[in-house]
Write a protein that binds this DNA or RNA. Structure first.
Lengths: 336, 336
DNA sequence: ACGCGTTTTGCAACCGGTTGCAATTCGACA
DNA sequence: TGTCGAATTGCAACCGGTTGCAAAACGCGT
């Protein structure tokens, strides 16, 4: 069905090597043969079979893009940026959905079968061992949105969740709240653990502030709503740092439903700054994750590792910042 | 680096064919050799190179998944279901982001280089010619979320937008609104055109109802908000059918901002039923698109076409239904 | 133990390219 | 026009598998 190298060679009256070389960057072909080949190729509608060539070159230009975050609106943007970023650099994302999977074995095997040049694990909830399994198998890998580590086994790109927790605490302190709380995601998620660490760390220096913690069962609207409803019954804090934006919006919904207002009665600060946070009927004060930078760095890093396989594992963390919107009262004059 | 067939053959003390056959469904191998091969393969950690085998079999099990809807939250669910559905059937999605592209040429060439077995164009905004370019190139293709056609050139799976427009009109009529309007997406989007057609068609039978139309510049929150703000200044209708949910939410935001309430002052009905529509602080009445069914059918159809390439182009439309929530007043007793 | 039909096996060619190497062609200069 | 080094070309082997075909091994009945 498809046109092959050989047919082009025959029509152009040259050897197969000549055709191959015309389509290979930096190979030695005279202008004359190149012209003949290009003419024949054009007439036949030939384009080289990337998979066949990968057999000898060892490069497929395929990158495994693995995620299990198909319910977090932020990740639509993540997929958009990853696919665009990869294709701008001549690479193709092979998408793997890990929603039900926890064992890396299968994914590793599958992606090796397709000889991907590298793998990007884009997930805030998968454990580090997942990415490490690829490294183990000799596949260049970077874990995006992964957990910070001082001695990483694989490349990690993301944000400093501990610093974010601290930042959230400081934002609440600066606004003069005296009873604050962390409403985390699942207790076992490393991102939740780290954010809690930073949050409580910063508040330890303010013993006058009362602080508490609870966990939602997932990073989801429903979980946030359910948890906040419970908290409202039990007597809520003045302000909450929520594990992420969608959780925050669930909490907001519960607060409104209870006839309370935000920030009048309760303050909320989220994390991520996903698209919906800026919607005026949500208007969520939150901490922005620099998604574009994280993705750019992830792509750079995976390409770098493909070129230099035994490059040292690296952690790249990007700074976040508070995006001031309407769910926290203004900074108090004369506060810390 | 990777273990090859030959190494397994050597270690097992059999021919390369024997190894190949062990890993080929339905090939003739004795239990004894199979055992030897499997042992050797296990010890070596061998798994066959899918790309190499595709050279002879002509099948890569790669499916091109093409979209340009990376800003519509509905599509996160779409990608989730497509990737899961494909991998459950042993296929791998090669994701292509067409956000800036309008010319099919590039995508066709690229996906042919990777010898994809088939292509799914998942987009409500790309023109039919896009999918047709693949058909032209001999690649099995289905256009999901595409436009209905009585004599399709390619497989189309989606909803009947004309019927949806009619359904929206009937919903508004049944609720006794007498001044209604369609707030569409971009005027040139086929989905907008079709929905308008159905909407006005149904209202033609109700000359007592006043009806008008306007277009948002995109299917986006901001566009909906901007357009509704304009409409509010000019004197709005009683109820709007909005081109999709995210547009609806933008409109809702503008209405709230103006100090009006919904459905008290103005009614809104959307289309899609994306995840956020059910969030209680949005609570959007809308028309549900059966996304899971559409995707299942799309996958079936692309697989069917791979198996029978000259299968007749087919259009499969799925019925939608109104999901009653809080942005339309209740059905009026005794209304049509 | 023999003959027969069925399975199983290995050989070798092929899938669509790439690439080292030796042979050929080219261009420039004397 | 002859010579020489550099650029270009084709041959053939190879990448990691698959598969048609003929030969070998097997199972079974007598």
């Amino acid at each position: 069905m498809a046109v092959t190298l050989r047919e082009v060679a025959d029509r152009a009256g040259v050897s197969r090597s000549a055709v191959s070389r015309t389509f290979t960057e930096g190979a030695s072909v005279s202008a004359k043969t190149r012209a003949k080949v290009e003419k024949a190729a054009l007439e036949l509608g030939y384009s080289p079979n990337a998979l066949a060539s990968s057999l000898t070159t060892g490069r497929t230009k395929l990158i495994g893009l693995i995620s299990n975050n198909f319910h977090n609106p932020l990740f639509l943007e993540v997929f958009d940026l990853f696919t665009r970023g990869l294709q701008d650099r001549g690479l193709r994302p092979l998408l793997v959905n890990l929603s039900n999977e926890t064992d890396p074995e299968n994914s590793v095997r599958m992606l090796r079968q397709y000889s991907v040049d590298g793998v990007i694990v884009a997930s805030s909830t998968l454990p580090p061992s997942f990415a490490e399994a690829f490294k183990q198998a000799g596949v260049p890998v970077v874990h995006s949105f992964g957990r910070f580590s001082t001695s990483p086994n694989v490349h990690v790109v993301g944000i400093d969740n501990v610093a974010c927790g601290r930042m959230a605490a400081e934002a609440l302190i600066a606004r003069g709240y005296t009873r604050v709380a962390f409403l985390g995601g699942p207790e076992k998620a490393t991102s939740t653990q780290d954010r809690a660490l930073g949050f409580f760390g910063a508040l330890r220096e303010h013993p006058e502030i009362e602080v508490s913690i609870s966990y939602a069962s997932a990073y989801s609207f429903d979980a946030g709503r359910v948890e906040m409803t419970k908290l409202l019954m039990a007597g809520p804090a003045e302000a909450y740092f929520c594990g992420d934006d969608v959780l925050s919006i669930g909490a907001l919904s519960a607060i409104e439903e209870a006839g309370l207002s935000c920030p009048g009665d309760i303050g909320i600060i989220g994390l991520n700054d996903m698209d919906m946070a800026r919607w005026q009927n949500i208007d969520l004060t939150t901490i922005r994750q620099p998604v574009a930078e994280i993705i750019r760095a992830s792509i750079d890093l995976v390409i770098g590792t493909i070129e230099h396989p035994d490059r040292h594992p690296e952690t790249r963390l990007f700074p976040c910042r508070v995006i001031e919107r309407g769910t926290l009262r203004p900074v108090q004059q004369g506060a810390a």
